[in-house]
Simulated assay, not measured.
Amino acid sequence: MATSRSGTRVAGVAGRALAYLESAKNLTGSAAALGGLALTFAGFAGTYWPVVVAGLYGAGALIAPPTRPPAPDFPDDPSSQLSSLRADLTTLREYLDQVDLPPAATKRIGALTKLLDGLLEPGWVSQALAQDPEGVHVLARAVHRDLPESVDAFVRTRWWTRMAPGQQDPEEQLERQLSVLQREVEALVAGLREAEEIRQQSHTRYLEDR
């Protein structure tokens, strides 16, 4: 086991050393050092040539641009995000089916997920949604964080309330949260509908003016 760890450390050191040899800092410093050797052979460095060569190498290494690892390439195409959201909504449904919720909350969650299904359905609706990055963000936030957090917080709070009753009813809090989420998604639907109405009206004016 100790031999394995030692071998791993040696390999890591060797890898870092090889990476430095190939780095811009080492290549620039080496080029500057070669210039120092050229000065030495030309008779300009004198007996201090090792200091001159080392100094030029250090100066070259300092002015070289630092090694920059490539930034992660996350998909920013809204259509790709919507495809991922459809799969995530299916996972969220499976989670919600396992949770024991009050009838009123179950009904409201059903209405909310129905809205989400309609918006994410492949076709012209999701294509219209893909043109609204803020709308895609609203849906992603609802699916990934807001809805699961509301339900999970209710389950945890309800257990504590049964152990020691508190001043607030966890069912009431859940109802309020779901109501806010539903209004938010309904506002998104209304915004998309309004955009289509404006488009239709613009086409009407175009035809009338023509």
Rank of each mutant, 00 (worst) to 15 (best):
M1G: 00
M1K: 06
A2V: 02
S6Y: 05
N26M: 11
G29Q: 08
S30P: 04
A32K: 01
A33Y: 02
L34P: 00
G35I: 01
L37D: 02
F41Y: 10
A45P: 05
A45H: 14
W49T: 13
A54V: 08
L56E: 12
A61I: 11
L62F: 14
A71F: 14
P75G: 02
D76Y: 06
D76R: 13
P78D: 03
S79K: 10
S80M: 08
S83R: 06
S83K: 08
S84G: 07
R86W: 14
T90G: 06
T91W: 09
T91G: 13
T91L: 14
L92E: 02
L96C: 08
D97E: 07
P102E: 06
P102C: 04
P102V: 11
P102D: 01
A105G: 07
T106M: 01
K107W: 09
R108A: 08
T113F: 10
L115A: 05
G118W: 01
L120C: 05
G123M: 03
W124G: 04
W124Y: 01
S126R: 12
D132F: 13
E134Y: 01
E134R: 04
L139E: 03
R141A: 02
V143R: 00
L147G: 00
S150M: 09
F154R: 03
V155T: 12
W160F: 13
M163P: 04
A164C: 04
E171S: 08
E172C: 08
E172V: 10
E175P: 11
R176L: 12
Q177G: 03
E184W: 02
E186N: 14
A190E: 13
E194P: 06
I198R: 13
T204L: 09
Y206H: 00
E208D: 01
